[in-house]
Structures are given as C-alpha cells and as structure tokens.
Write a protein that binds this DNA or RNA. Structure first.
Lengths: 290, 290
DNA sequence: TCGGCCATGAAACATTTGTTGCATGAATTG
DNA sequence: CAATTCATGCAACAAATGTTTCATGGCCGA
C-alpha cells in the first residue's frame, strides 16, 4: 500500500482505522470526534466518557505507530496549535511552481469566492422567496453545470413541499413541461455564460404562460433574465481557475430555500419533520452514535 | 474585593496582574502569552520554560480566585474550546417580523458562509487533486443533497476527462459499481451529517478494493472518512437556516476540479477545447452577441 | 538595629497519570 | 474438536502531576 499524505496524526488514525480491532476502532472514532478533549483531558477521563478501558487508548496509539498515548497526544496538540497563522502562507510564495503553486491556487480561489458572497443582493432573494411561497407549483430548470444547482434547490424545496416542486424535463421531454406552466406557478431558471438554448426556451415559455419567472444568473443581460419577475445575481467569473464559479449560485439557492421554508411556518416545519421521519424509518441514515 | 467582569479567565488574570507580587506577575504574563501551552502542557513544564518555580503557578491561580492551577487550566481550556455550535448571530435575533427579517436571514447566511470558505484547508485539496490526476478512473458518489455536489464534480471533470469519470450508480444498481473499483482508480465520496448508508458502503468498498478514497465531509469523524486517503473538510453547519450548507462542499469540488485540470497541462486543455467545440457545433449554447 | 511580614525556591507529599503484565474468553486454524 | 492466536478488561506498577510545607532571605516600620 502506498504511503499517503501524513499531514496530521488524525489522518494517520483515519487511515489505519478500518484495519483495527473492534474496540480500538471505537476509541479511535471517539478520539477523532473529540480531538480537542483528547489534547486537554486525561486518558482515564476520556476512557470514562467513551465507555472504554483506559488501556485501549495506549493500545490505539501504539497501533498507529506512536510509542504511546503521550506521544499521540503531543502530536495532536501540535497539529492543533493556533500560532500556525495558516500552515503555509501560499500567497506570499507567489506563483512558484511545485506543490505550493497548487495550494496557492486553491487559497486564491476560496478567498475570491468568499469575497463574492457578501456582494450578492439579499433583497431580491427575500422577494423571490415570497413568490415561491405563494406559488401553487414550482418548476426548476438548470442545464450543464447549473444542473447541480437545480437539483439542490429541488431537493431542499421538496423536503417540505414534496408534491409541488419538480425539475423541468425529468418526467418526459422538456417540451411537455413547457406547455404545462400555468399562471400562479413559479419557474426558476438557472444559467450563466455561455447560456444553453434550452434554459432560454424554458424562461421564455414561463414568461409567456404567465407564471412567475425567477432567474438565477450572472448578469441582468442574461437571456433568461428577460421578462423575469425576479433576477438573483451572482458572480460566476469572480474566482481564478478555468470554470466559472457556482458557489454564489449555490449560496443563493440555499438562501432561497431557507427563506421559503421560514415563510412556510408551522406547516412547513411539520412537513419537513414528516419527511425526515420517513427517511429515518427507511433507515436511510447511519444512526448517530457518539 | 469587587468582582470584575468575569468574561474570560485571561481577562481576570489581566485585571489582577498589577496588584500581584513581582514573580507572580512574571508568571502571569507568561501564561497570558502562552495560553495554548498552558492548557496542554504540564505545570512543571511551563515552569521550566518560564524559568520559574512550579509552585508559582499554583499561587498565581489562587491569587486570582481559583482553587488551584487545575481549575485555572480547566477554565482556560473551556475558553479555548472550538465553538461546538456555530456562533451565528441570527439565532439571537429571534423571529423578527416584517420583510426585513427575511433579508436579515439572507445576509446572515451569506456572511456566515463567506466566513467559512477561507477556513477550508487548502493543502489536502491540492494533494487530492494530484491523486485524481494519477487515477486511471474516477468514481463519484453523493446522495441526497450531496448529489448536486457529485454531479457538479462529474460534469467539470468530464469536460477534460470524458471517458474516465463516472457517478456511482448511474449505469445500473450501485452494487454493480461497488465491485468494479480497482487499485489505481479514485473514488470520491461526499457526505455530511446525517450520513446515508449507501455513501458509507461506497467508501468502505473503495477502501477494501485498494482504490484511492477521497472523502469530502463535514468532519474527520464522518464514517466515509474512515480509511480515506484524503479528507477534504468543510463546515456544513456554519450558517444559520434549517439545512446544512453545501457552499463549502461546492467550493471544494470546484477547487478540486480546477487543480486537477491544471495538473493535466496541455493535454487537458486540448480535451477541454474539443469538448467545447463539440458543444458549440451542436449549438447547445446561445451565440454571443451584443 | 530589631522584629514581623511576606515573597520565594526547594523538597516532600498524596494523587493521578500513562503503562504493562496477566487472566479470560472469543474467534480462527489445523 | 483441539490448539492457538488474539482482543479485551482488570489490576498493579512506576513515573509524573499539582499541592503543600518549610526554611530562607529581603523588605519595611518601630
């Protein structure tokens, strides 16, 4: 087996975990989940809380290559030390080559996208949410990379409005749905440059049908924004790299869902709880265990 | 003696400092300057580094109102504990009414998510990208809300590696794919609390098969992170609202794709251009015009 | 200068720490 | 089915921990 990145003791732990005895896995998971306590409290203390034998901690440390718990703890402590001001200030290194160039690219990208988020206008989102709240039915359209945004929106909205939300084109050819738009319904179209033909057609159909059109786009001049009742803008090109950024669109989608849920009040809450209960009953999720 | 603002043990220390004996002031300043070491290392250890007597630490603690060094240390430890629940201001704002409440919710959410992005560790992303670059084949798995992240990643990677990238379970039952993982391939699993059973099963299958496992998750303790060669962390709960935030996961996915593309060099560039040319020829996109 | 006070360091204290040897019982192998 | 390995909890161990006591030495007021 190749030697993977040995960046932190926690990653060593994680890697070795599956091949460990049952009990050691248990305490290993506990350590991973409570690494702050692991650095500050005593082994016996942790053992009591984890419901395990103190010796298990020593054995765990040895099993992943340390001389004992003390050494593991020391490693965890160093990994957590705050003075690190960012373990590697990739930015100051400039555009050098080697592995640092990649790291610098990532840092630049993340910072640029973070800077873009607060620039998103909030008011239109709140207004669009109200429109969604009032809509009898909600259609969502997004193609190519925007499909992921569309599906996230679809997923979150369906958690509390299961029967009224639907992605365009999932139950037949797109054109079938385009004819189904009605006044009183809402159609969300997501897109940015270059714009796909389909998304523009959806937007036009929505506008003609008299449905409320909500466009999530990178520009007011985007073709799907024409005639839209609400336009939610984000910056797709704001970050370095080779693909336009979808982070802003995702943030908008999530805010939109959150506010719409909030407007739904107790009824939405009840429906969300029902959905979650159903998922839990189908044992979709791994049961929580500390 | 009047009881001063007991906001944090460090401020108590600072306030009491001037009225302390000379030596205790010295020790007190040392503790204030090295509070991280104070919580993690032993009293004698600190004394040696500070060039002071171990007893001075006990006396300092008692001088500022604690029963002993142990209690002071416990207070420092708690003060330093990473915020277990997101420190978002929105919660305290309660349910304000009027249209402004919704706008405030959106603003809070966007700001919180923006704050979370720079906290994403960049190094692991760069390392994971290299693993993707070396992989003969790339599988991607994400369920429920994480499906959108999986599909975005799938889409972007396929722009320049069309034949080697594939979402788990799209061409038949999941189990068929689980048996197809091979060493030299990479499997990306995306998930956060609550974790779906399927995603965990995919991760385990990947690990067992000897393929490189890359987990995009909200915690090192996430079940799909066990045995993973690379874990890319984001904060799912960092923002107010009712659903966990996917913004971080999307940002990671995009950075991952960007760096992988960058590693691909000229070959990747050529393939991307081919793909774009093909899409343009099929007139997928609306032609640019002023 | 003397006498009391207190800060200070060194050493002894009881406790708690991480560790290890051992016995038990389950799982695996021949 | 027997032999063996191995995981696991318990208990005893030595080392290290935080605390306390005590002797020392400097400081200030009488």
């Amino acid at each position: 087996m190749a030697e993977p990145a040995k960046s932190s003791p926690l990653s060593e732990l994680r890697i070795a975990l599956p091949s460990l005895p049952l009990r050691l896995q248990e305490v290993g998971r506990f350590v991973a989940a409570n690494d702050y306590d692991a650095t500050t409290r005593s082994m016996r203390d942790l053992a009591a809380e984890a419901g395990a034998d103190p010796a298990a901690f020593t054995r765990l440390a040895k099993a992943i290559g340390y001389s004992g718990w003390d050494e593991l703890r020391a490693a965890l402590t160093e990994a957590r030390r705050p003075s690190q001001t960012a373990p590697f200030s990739g930015r100051t290194r400039g555009r050098r080559h080697g592995p640092n160039a990649d790291v610098a690219l990532v840092i630049d990208k993340l910072e640029a996208e973070a800077a873009g988020l607060p620039r998103i206008p909030a008011q239109p989102i709140a207004e669009a949410a109200r429109a969604l709240h009032d809509a009898k039915r909600i259609w969502i359209a997004g193609y190519r990379s925007c499909r992921s945004v569309a599906e996230l929106l679809n997923y979150e909205l369906r958690l509390f409005r299961p029967e009224q939300v639907q992605i365009v084109g999932t139950s037949g050819p797109d054109d079938l749905d385009l004819g189904a738009f009605r006044p009183g319904e809402a159609v969300i179209v997501i897109g940015f440059l270059p714009y796909t033909h389909v998304s523009v057609r959806v937007a036009q159909a929505a506008h003609r049908s008299g449905a409320t059109l909500i466009a999530i786009a990178d520009s007011l001049a985007a073709p799907m924004a024409e005639g839209a009742d609400h336009v939610l803008l984000f910056e797709a090109a704001s970050s370095p790299g080779f693909f336009p950024s979808l982070t802003g669109a995702i943030a908008i989608a999530q805010s939109l869902a959150a506010v719409t849920f909030s407007l739904g009040g107790a009824a939405a809450k009840t429906r969300l709880e029902n959905t979650e209960a159903r998922l839990a009953a189908a044992s979709t999720y791994v049961s929580e265990k500390g």
